[in-house]
Structure formats: C-alpha cells, structure tokens
Amino acid sequence: MEEISILLLFDVLVGLTLVWLAWQTLSSLDLFRAIVLFIAFGLLMALAWVRLNAPDVALAEATIGAGLTGALFLSALAQLSASTKRKDEENKIENS
C-alpha cells in the first residue's frame, strides 16, 4: 500500500504548509510580502480542495485566487502607497 502512504504524506505536508503559510501571511509586516504569501496560499488551498475530493471548489478557488485576488490586492497596494505618499508630502509641507 505504497500509494496510500505517499498520499497520506502528501496530505499532511499540504495541511501543515497551509497552516504555516496562513500564519506567515497574517503576521507579515510588509504588505507586499503578505500578498505574495496569500497568492501561494491560494495555490496550495486549491491542491487541498483537490485532495478533499471537491474539484468544483478547487476550480473556483483556482479561478478566483489566480485570476482576481492577486491582481486586485496588487492594485490596491499601488493605490495605497500612492495615497500614503501624498499624505506624507502634505505633512512635510505643513510642518515646514
């Protein structure tokens, strides 16, 4: 029963890595790093859904995770850094 033991090892590894990635994503101070970790989390989550025998959910996770959330977060971050920069400059003008 080699196959079952390999699959068990695969499942345990996916599960542990998912929890670890989630922790790293939540505790990351750098927002860009958190976004990239979240993209990786989405990929592994799709693998986990596949192993849980839910290919429909895996497909939804893959389409949303790979196609939309990554691009959405990166755009939001760009918007955020532009607006904080503007605020910083305003503060500089006010303080001087």
């Binding site: 893959a62 389409t63 790979a66 196609g67 990554g70 691009a71 971050l77 760009a78």
Partner: peptide, 17 residues
C-alpha cells in the same frame, strides 16, 4: 486554469508594483 491565469497576476505585478 492555473496555467492560463498565472499571467494575470504577473502582469498586475509588473504594471502596478
């Protein structure tokens, strides 16, 4: 899906970050 949509994230990164 992964093979096709990977491009979207990469382009978002190049364009926005």
């Amino acid at each position: 899906v992964f093979a096709l949509l990977a491009a979207v994230t990469a382009i978002a990164f190049v364009k926005r970050a």
